[in-house]
Amino acid sequence: MKRRYLVIILLLTCYTISHAQTTTQKSTIIDSVFVCPPCGSCDYQTFDKAGKCPMCGMTLISMSLNDFKKQLNLKPVTVCFYIQDGVELLDFAGPMEVFTTAGFHIVTVSKTKSELHTNGLSFIPQYSIKDAPKADVLVVFGGSFAATVADTAVISWIRAQRTTASYFLSVCTGAYILGKAGILDNMTATTYFLQIDNLQKAFPNTKVLANTRFVDNGNIITTAGISAGIDGALHLVEKLRGRDYAKSIAQTIEYDKWIPEQGLVLNKGN
């Protein structure tokens, strides 16, 4: 009988020790990691303490393990840049830097694949409106926009993107292009500060606001002039990936002028 009691005591002791070890192990399970802000070269690396990324030198940021896992499985986003000859360089170069840093796929489209010119730079678009792939986001830009607005083939193509694109973004006087395609009908918009009154006259069914960095109608975003396109692009990244992710993009490109609340968000549901 004593031997039976001794065996039971030993079993209970072993269970207690084993349970305590298991509990200790559970309490030390890692639920957060340190990661490099998106830079394209080491986005999938994790580290167990704060500091500098040994590969790119950027300051590591803390992120929950679940959020990091979600980041690895993010749905890819394709962004179509419609670019016309005489486009304003920073209008598209700024948002392009934001979206590529965010890991989005960029395609450039124009009416044809002929060489385009802007601010002393020449380049060839990847696609024409005849063979452009479907995109999640369509972005249009300012500069020499008059010929684009008058081109019925281009405007028809842009209007047709409403059947496939989830978001539209205009930078500067690119708002005229969206307006001509009817995308700004009964919407609120903004544009380059010298064009506020002219845009309002051109599209009386659109409410045009001055002194507004960007206006978000839900899935249609317009921005003020030139550098404001960076703010609009970061805002769209925030909508798709969250504010912390957008902040890390701003940090990566060293854009310290982004103030999320500086824009007007009319519909937070999308």
Rank of each mutant, 00 (worst) to 15 (best):
1 M>Y: 11
2 K>I: 02
7 V>Q: 15
11 L>K: 00
13 T>E: 12
15 Y>C: 11
18 S>V: 04
19 H>C: 02
29 I>M: 03
31 D>Y: 03
32 S>Y: 06
32 S>K: 04
35 V>W: 01
36 C>Q: 13
36 C>H: 11
37 P>Y: 04
40 G>M: 02
41 S>D: 14
46 T>W: 07
49 K>E: 15
51 G>E: 08
53 C>I: 01
57 G>C: 12
57 G>L: 13
59 T>R: 02
62 S>C: 07
65 L>P: 06
68 F>I: 04
70 K>C: 07
78 T>E: 15
78 T>W: 07
84 Q>T: 09
84 Q>S: 11
89 L>F: 13
90 L>F: 10
90 L>C: 04
93 A>V: 11
106 I>C: 11
111 K>S: 13
114 S>K: 14
115 E>M: 11
118 T>R: 02
120 G>E: 14
120 G>V: 07
125 P>Q: 15
128 S>L: 08
130 K>T: 12
131 D>Y: 00
131 D>V: 00
132 A>L: 02
133 P>T: 00
135 A>N: 05
135 A>S: 14
136 D>E: 12
144 S>C: 05
146 A>E: 15
147 A>E: 15
155 I>K: 02
158 I>V: 07
167 Y>S: 04
168 F>K: 02
168 F>I: 05
169 L>I: 06
170 S>K: 00
175 A>I: 06
176 Y>R: 03
176 Y>N: 13
177 I>A: 14
183 I>T: 09
190 T>Q: 10
191 T>F: 05
193 F>W: 10
194 L>G: 12
196 I>E: 03
197 D>F: 10
198 N>P: 03
200 Q>A: 14
202 A>V: 00
208 V>M: 06
208 V>A: 11
209 L>S: 09
210 A>Y: 02
214 F>K: 07
215 V>E: 13
215 V>S: 11
215 V>Q: 11
218 G>R: 01
219 N>V: 02
220 I>G: 08
220 I>T: 11
221 I>M: 08
221 I>W: 03
225 G>C: 05
228 A>W: 01
237 V>K: 00
238 E>V: 00
238 E>N: 08
239 K>G: 06
241 R>F: 09
246 A>E: 09
246 A>M: 06
251 Q>K: 12
258 W>D: 14
264 L>K: 09
265 V>T: 06
267 N>E: 05
268 K>G: 13
